[in-house]
Nucleic acid binder design. Structure first.
Lengths: 214, 214
DNA sequence: GTCTATACAACGATAGAC
DNA sequence: GTCTATCGTTGTATAGAC
């Protein structure tokens, strides 16, 4: 057995030893299917990545049926984002900031990140950066999250040419802003007003989104 | 001078020491101890971060007494900064990249960071980011290091107006590039050629250096 | 009784073996 | 080409909580 799933409390081999609770119907109170799926998903996604992990395997590790993924999360995508345990809902934020003039999207993106991160005091961001810098598995999950959500559903809608390069470039500026303002706390950027930061940063994001890349 | 093999500071000498030629005390084999401590410190800080690494453990790995850390570096903090400064000598790099057309300085800076970080495989950068995100003291040291070297001796010479803001903005783009390319390893930026990365990133750095900020 | 969490079967798509 | 295995997903019947 692989080392990751070996740490899981309930091994996924119920078939022969004991019939167990493979019955239909609502499970007796105490067995939390949703949490079991989340825990199994974190282990599987971390070990095998998004593509390598399978819904069936996750459900097997969790000891439930694969259909429970759809029932509780809506699909593999949603289970993946849920397993990241992000403090905010990226889908909602995307829907909030996407409509409007595409030539001012850089402003809205920069302002949104400032608002979100300032509101949380930068703590979750620092924790995320630390986790990503410490665990390669976390880095891969974050990378695949950015590719899947930010790229496919966001940059692609605005920048048809070279969308992945544009998405990565946007990530450099946004992540770098977070590093300097909340991790390094380098002045005067750490204490600057949102408007001033947006005025300086947003043109860069805008160029990465819709401008010339060289 | 080779900027990569940094000029190492000499061991501390008594304040009333005569000019350079005079040697006090024993010297045999001292440099080996210092190098061993640096190598062990790099490994320990990279693996456990600033807080997790211990002076005793570093000295043990180096095969010397823990008091040698104080003797050669002055303490754990100084040893940490020394282990960070080791892969690149900022003074030499500054002298190497500063002369030339100021309007193409962004290109030279971006290319320099790419060359330095790629040469090291990104390892020291990842270790630095991890330590900075883990330990506030490490963030403070790095912040003061950036302020002192990058700001006072570099940006100030090129951008007289709002030099600290320009320095912080440059840091966002350079650090963000490092995060995406070496920590997150987000494609296509993680595998892109230097020329392509410079073409996309350098205009941003150039604007932060000499362009309008809003 | 209603509601719903659950298990099972099956579907279309896809990738690889032969 | 066909065959097979496996993927994500959907429909549906049912057992248990309410």
């Amino acid at each position: 057995m692989d080392p990751v799933s070996a740490t899981r409390p309930s091994p996924p081999e119920p078939a022969d030893a004991a019939p167990r609770g493979r019955r239909r119907g609502r499970r007796a109170g105490g067995a939390d299917t949703r949490d079991a799926l989340l825990a199994a998903a974190r282990a599987e996604f971390a070990e095998r990545g998004y593509e390598g992990a399978t819904v069936r395997r996750i459900a097997e590790v969790a000891g439930v049926d694969a259909a429970m993924v759809n029932h509780w999360f809506g699909g593999k995508d949603a289970l993946f984002t849920a397993s990241l345990d992000l403090p905010l809902d990226p889908e909602a934020l995307l829907a909030l900031v996407l409509p409007g003039d595409p030539e001012r999207l850089g402003e809205r993106i920069t302002a949104m990140f400032l608002q979100v991160w300032d509101g949380a005091g930068g703590g979750p961001l620092v924790a995320m950066i630390r986790s990503v810098a410490t665990h390669p598995d976390a880095a891969r999950m974050m990378r695949e999250f950015v590719s899947r959500v930010i790229l496919d559903r966001f940059v692609g809608a605005v920048a048809p040419d070279r969308p992945d390069e544009r998405a990565a470039l946007c990530a450099t500026q946004i992540l770098g802003l977070g590093m300097v303002r909340y991790v390094l706390r380098l002045e005067p950027l750490a204490s600057a007003e949102h408007a001033e930061v947006v005025a300086a940063i947003a043109p860069t994001v805008q160029r990465y989104l819709t401008g010339p890349l060289d």
